[in-house]
């Protein structure tokens, strides 16, 4: 039996090996996030503040195209309110939607027109297309942030580390105009200027808006944006595991009952 377990462990290690192979960067700052582990959940207050940071700082350049306003008040989302089980009814999401301007149309004369956002809209992109975005950003394309924390190895720590990782360029490193030095970015030269400064936003809950705090809040929000069903998934997972455990015990009992008089 021990041999069996050992063999299985080797195979399991093989599976995990491919994930480790790509390996997290050693120099990423490892934050103790609330959403880590099988019991992890999002810190809603932090994610709400993170939304404010996104809206006031990031949204000028970065889209969030896979997130819709009704998502904000879904179960497990930053603005979820159990009084509104149907997130489409939640006035908070409606109010947030209204703060954004959405392009719609064409109208009866064939032109596009602007209107305030409604709950069914997705977050509007700051630029009409990638080329426009590049033209406005010195040739660099500000990536969409909807999946950022899943699109990088150890994504949440990466994003946080990047946001707080800006430094003065060391001796001998030449930065062309518009570039900043950030050792967390691959190649260390990044076209995004440091986005956060102490007090960049004013939090309504009284939290001090330090760069570190805003980076953590934003990471909470964007981790939710990339994996909005995480809380549901983990809760379901525990129910399924419990069921399978009970079933395994019952079936083992059945197995022993069937085989009880058989030597094998």
């Amino acid at each position: 039996m021990l041999k069996r377990i050992a063999s299985f462990a080797v195979l399991a290690a093989f599976v995990a090996g491919s994930a480790i192979a790509a390996g997290p960067k050693a120099d990423l700052k490892d934050v103790d996030w609330s959403f880590e582990g099988p019991f992890g959940t999002y810190d809603k207050a932090s994610a709400q503040r993170g939304f404010q940071v996104y809206q006031e700082v990031c949204a000028a350049c970065h889209s969030l195209k896979y997130v819709a306003f009704y998502n904000l008040t879904d179960k497990g989302a930053p603005f979820y309110n159990p009084d509104f089980p149907n997130s489409n009814e939640n006035p908070v999401a409606k109010a947030i939607a209204k703060m954004f301007t959405v392009s719609d149309g064409p109208d009866e004369t064939g032109d596009m027109f602007d209107r305030p956002g409604v709950i069914s809209d997705k977050f509007p992109a700051p630029f009409a297309n990638d080329m426009a975005a590049m033209a406005s950003n010195g040739g660099a394309l500000p990536p969409d942030l909807s999946l950022m924390t899943r699109a990088r190895v150890d994504g949440s720590n990466y994003l946080y580390s990047l946001l707080v990782g800006y430094k003065d360029a060391p001796e001998g490193v030449e930065l062309s105009s518009g570039m900043s030095y950030n050792p967390m970015f691959s190649g260390s030269k990044i076209a995004m200027a440091p986005p956060l400064f102490d007090g960049s936003v004013e939090y309504s809950d009284g939290t001090k808006a330090s760069v570190d705090q805003m980076a953590k809040d934003l990471t909470q929000f964007l981790t939710w944006a990339a994996d909005p069903k995480m809380e549901q998934r983990k809760a379901t997972g525990w129910a399924v595991m419990l069921y399978l455990l009970i079933l395994a015990i019952l079936l083992y009992g059945s197995y022993r009952a069937v085989w009880r008089n058989v030597k094998h």
Partner: peptide
């Protein structure tokens, strides 16, 4: 009994 319990659990699941 154990077979009935297992079978029921499979069906319910």
């Amino acid at each position: 009994f154990i077979h009935i319990a297992s079978g029921t659990a499979v069906v319910v699941g």
